[in-house]
C-alpha cells in the first residue's frame, strides 16, 4: 500500500475558521513588526560593517578570557560567541569574535587583525583562525540597499507575472502571502536574534519563490475549477481547489523539508541560519498559500472571465451567468 500523508479524498472546510486564521496571521505579522521595532535584527557584518574572526582551538573556549584579552586593544564593541555543531570533533572548539567597524577606515587593517590574533594566542596557544572577514561601512550600506531592492523587485516582478497570467485579485492574494511570509521570517529572526546577513536575504528570496510556487499551484486549480463549476460559490470553488491540491502541497513541502532538515542538522554551522530561514519559510509559506492567499482572494472576489453581467460577478450569487 502507498504511503499517504493526506487521505486521497478530503473535504476539509478551510474557510470555516477563516476569520480566526486570518486574524492569527494579522496578529503574527503585527507581532513580528513589533519585535523588529523593539529588538531589532542581529545584523551580521555584511549589513553593519565590521570584522568577524572565527577561532578554533583544541582547548575549551573561555569567552571571558577572550574578552579580557581583547579589552586593552580598545576596539569598541566586541562580541564573542561560542559556536556549537554536532559535526565538530571532541577537541574542536569554535568561537566567533565580532568587532565593530573601526572609526575612519573601510576594511580592517592588518595591524588590528595581528593584534587581535596575538592577544588571543596569548590566552590559548593552540588557537587558529580559520576565517577572517571584514566589511567596510561603505559596502555594508550598499549591501543593505541592494538587499531591500532585491526583495522589493522580486515581489514586484511576481505581482506583474501573476497579474498577466491570472487576474489582479490573484496577484494581490499571492503578494499578500509573500509579504506575510517575509514579515514573519524577519519576526522570528528578531525574536531569536539569529545573525541576519546576506545569506538570509537569499533565503528570504527563496521563501518568496517557494511560497509563490505553492500559491500558484492552488490558484491554477482555482482558475480551472472556476471554469468547470460555473455556478459554484467562490468559497466552495476555493475550498475544493485547496482540497484537490492538498495532497501535492503536503507532499512537496514534506520532501523539501526532508532535504532542508538534513541540511540543517548535517550541513555545518556556517549555513545553519540560512537553512533555518528556509525551513521556517517553507512552513509559513505552505500555511500562507492556503490561508492567506486564498482568504484574500475570497475577500476580493473574482471576476469570472466569461461573465457578461454588469456587476462583475465577484464570485457571489450573481456570478451564475451561463456561458
Amino acid at each position: 500500500m502507498r504511503l499517504k500523508l493526506v487521505p486521497s479524498e478530503t473535504n476539509w472546510q478551510f474557510f470555516r475558521g477563516s476569520k480566526m486564521t486570518f486574524g492569527a496571521s494579522l496578529v503574527a505579522m503585527v507581532l513580528s513588526l513589533l519585535l523588529f521595532a523593539i529588538l531589532g535584527l542581529n545584523f551580521g557584518i555584511d549589513f553593519r560593517g565590521g570584522t568577524t574572526i572565527r577561532t578554533e582551538s583544541t582547548q575549551a573556549v573561555d569567552v571571558a578570557a577572550y574578552r579580557d584579552a581583547l579589552a586593552p586593544l580598545g576596539l569598541g564593541d566586541v562580541s564573542i560567541t561560542e559556536v556549537f555543531d554536532p559535526a565538530f570533533g571532541a577537541d574542536q572548539n569554535v568561537a566567533q569574535v565580532r568587532i565593530q567597524a573601526q572609526e575612519g577606515q573601510e576594511s580592517v587593517t592588518p595591524e588590528v587583525i595581528n593584534a587581535v590574533e596575538a592577544a588571543l594566542q596569548e590566552v590559548d596557544p593552540t588557537i587558529t583562525f580559520p576565517s577572517v572577514e571584514s566589511v567596510g561601512p561603505k559596502v555594508s550600506g550598499e549591501l543593505v540597499r541592494t538587499a531591500i531592492l532585491a526583495v522589493g523587485l522580486a515581489i514586484a516582478a511576481v505581482l506583474v507575472y501573476i497579474w498577466l497570467r491570472f487576474e489582479w485579485q490573484f496577484s494581490l492574494g499571492a503578494v499578500a502571502a509573500l509579504v506575510h511570509d517575509v514579515v514573519l521570517t524577519i519576526g522570528i529572526f528578531a525574536a531569536l536574534q539569529i545573525k541576519f546577513d546576506l545569506a538570509i536575504i537569499a533565503a528570504l528570496l527563496t521563501i518568496v519563490g517557494y511560497s509563490l510556487n505553492d500559491t500558484v499551484v492552488v490558484f491554477d486549480r482555482v482558475r480551472e475549477n472556476l471554469r468547470r463549476y460555473k455556478k459554484m460559490d467562490l468559497k466552495e470553488v476555493l475550498n475544493l481547489s485547496i482540497n484537490e491540491t492538498l495532497s501535492r502541497t503536503v507532499m512537496t513541502s514534506f520532501t523539501t523539508l526532508l532535504a532542508l532538515i538534513s541540511l540543517f542538522v548535517l550541513g555545518g554551522d556556517v549555513i545553519r541560519g540560512f537553512v533555518f530561514a528556509m525551513i521556517w519559510g517553507v512552513i509559513v509559506g505552505t500555511y500562507s498559500s492556503v490561508f492567506v492567499a486564498s482568504n484574500i482572494l475570497l475577500m476580493l472576489g473574482v471576476k469570472r472571465d466569461w461573465s457578461k453581467s454588469g456587476d462583475g460577478g465577484a464570485g457571489t450569487q450573481f456570478a451564475n451567468v451561463d456561458a
Binding site: 583562525f129 572577514e133 567596510g136
Partner: peptide
C-alpha cells in the same frame, strides 16, 4: 580596501 575575507 572596502571588504576583505579570508577563509582557511
Amino acid at each position: 580596501f572596502l571588504e576583505e575575507r579570508t577563509i582557511g
